[in-house]
Design a protein around this nucleic acid. Structure first.
Lengths: 339, 339
DNA sequence: CTGAAAGCGCTTACAG
DNA sequence: CTGAAAGCGCTTACAG
């Protein structure tokens, strides 16, 4: 430890005032070059550590940005976070990460902690059931919020996410184009906006192709590889014998393919499977996964940019910004085999 | 925004002093019950937000703990982080996460930022080439450090990691026991302590079984699924035609199996493959992965505990703590086929 | 170009 | 059981 080196330590040792030292260390042009150099050198040799708490107490800007998502370990969020990190790093912001695991309470605790630390802003993929007052809590205390991946009704902050209904329709149409008509939808939940949009997109595509929608072909729930794997049993025992599955995301699709393979069938040949997100992993799965690119990196980058812009005074990013998904056709889908 | 509600706002509105309000909000027994209740109610209605920067400036304790690892998106670290998170949450500490991507500079920046924020401690999986002075930087400024997963020479802080040499020998012996003698080692690097220990463990096991060690059977480098997938080409074209692969970790093993399958061979039957870590994913891979449990959750939990204990004054955890790995036998390994 | 002084919002002895 | 006052380490007008 030793005794703390602070501005006044440097100032005293050089016979200057703390005001001058403070200005010099932040490269103010008010300080003479020679003085500045001398001060910086001294700071270095004394091992001075800038106290951001003290500074931010004074300036009420902390350089801290919070990010809270369902689960940072989920590769979907991980890819978004990587993009956010890149953007914030470039702007020398510290970011604090948290999972809410879809607990509104955990999410609120995080927002409160962030406020206590004087966070400059927050990027969040809201937990299921997030009330708008939780977002208002941040905004009203001067901490702007940006939403990613999911919407919250009646909230007018910037939102960045993929166009889910459009994207899932791409996948469904792809399968219909290959001749499939008995197509199951595996995974997702009506409790999130994303879940509702994706199911709706699937239903729309079927109807447009005059294929009857059978609610029993929906296996709701799975959102992870493990759950997709376990869902294979249900999927394979559906009385309608689907020949294809539109999956909630890549994780579910990969899990489902593993489950199908375990049962002795060949995914991509016996059963066509589509994913969603186009994770890095999708292209190295076996078979490589036909999926829908969902622009994780775009979402992360744009959300971070929007927040930084907002902190710098501009605020024209409010409202919904949809990323347009794109089809990625690989080996996990193939034309319907004639019986 | 409105004007900020602070202690004095509450104090003034109730005709009390800030000292009393401060004590009441932190449940000091010095304050009369009735007064405390009144104060808490008022804080609630005014929407008071505790200013931790101000408090920590005074107390020099921030409730912030930093965690920096190679890559939080790597499931190995993700599983450790999950355990750390659980332990810190329980103790109402905020944790700040960062990747260093094996950049010593990025890691040092993080440590400095943490010091500036008044971090109470740091848990780190040190970047390749971390000099001991970077750890000293934290320690000397009153921020204790705990190492996980990797060691740094000549540093006497607590270290929690698996016993890599022992663990990889378990995997190697398992394959030898199945009759394999031409066993490749895929992935890892001599630049980390972990990499050196694992290769050494592999070499030791072979020598003990009187199997000649062929350096060409080592394919160094891969540490990700993608890299493991790509390494399959090299692996399959080795002139010695190995019948088994000891992989650096589960990710490499799963990638390698995918690559092997892509080449028309059946992993687990034609080629035996072992992983390392026993990620959640290992058991749902196809074939399910024979691997070595590496105690990620243990490491995370113990490291967090050690740090919290240290912050509370005890410090008997210095030095190396090895978690003993265990074999998990599944479907990706099988007896050597007789030619 | 540099310095003296106030203040950011808390907590903590110290009095009473 | 409650209050007055100092101080944590900065930054920012304001003077000179």
């Amino acid at each position: 430890m030793g005794q703390k080196v602070k501005l006044s330590t440097i100032a005293d040792s050089l016979g200057l005032s703390t005001a001058t030292v403070s200005l010099a260390l932040r490269d103010s042009p008010l300080v003479a070059d020679a003085t500045r150099e001398k001060i910086k050198e001294q700071a270095q040799t004394l091992g001075y550590i800038y106290n951001r708490r003290a500074a931010s107490l004074r300036t009420s800007r902390s350089g801290i940005i919070g990010v809270v998502v369902h689960d940072i370990m989920n590769p979907f969020y991980a890819e978004i976070l990587r993009a956010i990190e890149g953007e914030l790093d470039r702007n020398r912001q510290t970011f604090i990460l948290s999972n809410h695991y879809d607990s509104v309470e955990k999410q609120r605790n995080f927002i409160e902690t962030l406020l206590q630390l004087g966070g400059d802003g927050v990027i969040m993929s809201p937990a299921i059931g997030t009330p708008k007052r939780d977002i208002a809590l941040a905004e009203e205390n001067g901490m702007p919020a940006i939403l990613i991946a999911r919407s919250v009704d009646e909230v007018d902050v910037p939102i960045y996410r993929g166009d889910d209904a459009y994207g899932i329709a791409l996948a469904t149409n792809h399968l219909i184009g290959l001749g499939h008509s008995c197509i199951a939808m595996v995974g997702g939940t009506d409790q999130t906006s994303t879940g509702r949009h994706r199911y709706q997109g699937y239903v729309n595509a079927l109807q447009k192709a005059n294929i009857e929608v059978d609610p029993d072909l929906r296996i709701p729930g799975p959102r992870t590889k493990q759950a997709g794997f376990e869902a294979a049993v249900n999927f394979l025992s559906l009385p309608q014998k689907p020949t294809a599955a539109v999956c909630w995301n890549d994780l579910v699709a990969i899990g489902l393919m593993n489950g199908i393979a375990r049962a002795g069938l060949v995914p991509g040949k016996d059963i066509s499977v589509t994913g969603y997100d186009d994770l890095e992993e999708a292209s190295i799965a076996t078979p490589s996964l036909t999926t829908v690119w969902n622009g994780q990196a775009e979402v992360g980058r744009m959300a971070a940019r929007a927040l930084l812009d907002k902190l710098n005074g501009s605020s024209d990013a409010d409202g919904l910004h949809l990323i347009r998904p794109e089809m990625r056709i690989r080996q996990s889908t193939s034309p319907l085999k004639q019986a």
